[in-house]
Amino acid sequence: MTVLTTLPKPARSRFAAGRVVRALVVNPGALIGAIILTALVIGAIFAPLLAPFELYATDTGPRLSPPTTGNLLGTDLHGRDIFSRVLYGGRFSLSVGIATVLFAAVLGSLFGVFIGFVGGRVDAVGSRIIDVMFGFPSIVLSILIVAVLGVGLVNVVIAVGIADIPHFARVVRGAVLGAKEQLFVEASRALGAGDLRIMLRHIMPNILPTMIVLATLNLGNAILSTASLSFLGLGAQPPTPEWGAMLSSGREFMRYNPSIMIFPGLALFLAVMSVNLLGDRLRQVLDPRTAD
């Protein structure tokens, strides 16, 4: 406890939920983003109630039909209701994006703490790996990982997640190094294993806002990347109505029923845009240091 009391105050309490919400609401961009995202999430969660048709229902109307009262956004080649599929699609596209970011955040933090805490050569090599992964074409890495693991949404989560690790690892490592230095200087003694816990307790509140901003900013990319992999045939498999997969299989019929392409694409675009809007504002509010 003596150590803690000598430490500078662990970050001014930037992470106050009420203040954050207020800051988001007064910003028109963030408000729009929040509304769109909420709508998409509600659509996804309550898809079984909201969607006029079942998840895998075929022949819900004439095939390749344009929007009608029976099929609000029309139907695809198999007579599946596009509106229902777009709603259900959110369940896959959004949750896959979120899972990817969580995966990356957890592994990235662990890696960052590890190399930052151990330091020395481990840190040098680890940082190098982060550097290389940072600019390395993430899609190449993801495709490579899917080749090892096989296709499927879960494997896409892992693949894109791994490619996203450096973003989190770098921030956490930096925070750990900073905390370590402070502890070292101010407590004037070498750190032991028990101190890792103390240190984590100290840095966690400090980096939490940054992590939240990073996670939000990465979420948009994660949704895009996972949908891209599904578009390339590496992710969701038929008949899963993931948005990227819907776009890929609907392409041939674009000219006969444009809504096959318009609506899943629009849903994807709106999801990514709303997340980005929120992320930008969150960054301004929570983490002015990284607001470039």
Binding site: L224, G244, L247, R251, M254, M261, G265, F269, M273, D280
Partner: peptide, 22 residues
């Protein structure tokens, strides 16, 4: 700029082909 980073590029590409090509 926001639209630029939020558009799925495969969707952009297909739409561009459809509108300006086809």
């Amino acid at each position: 700029a926001l639209i630029g980073v939020s558009l799925p590029s495969f969707w952009t590409g297909m739409t561009l082909i459809f509108v300006f090509g086809t």
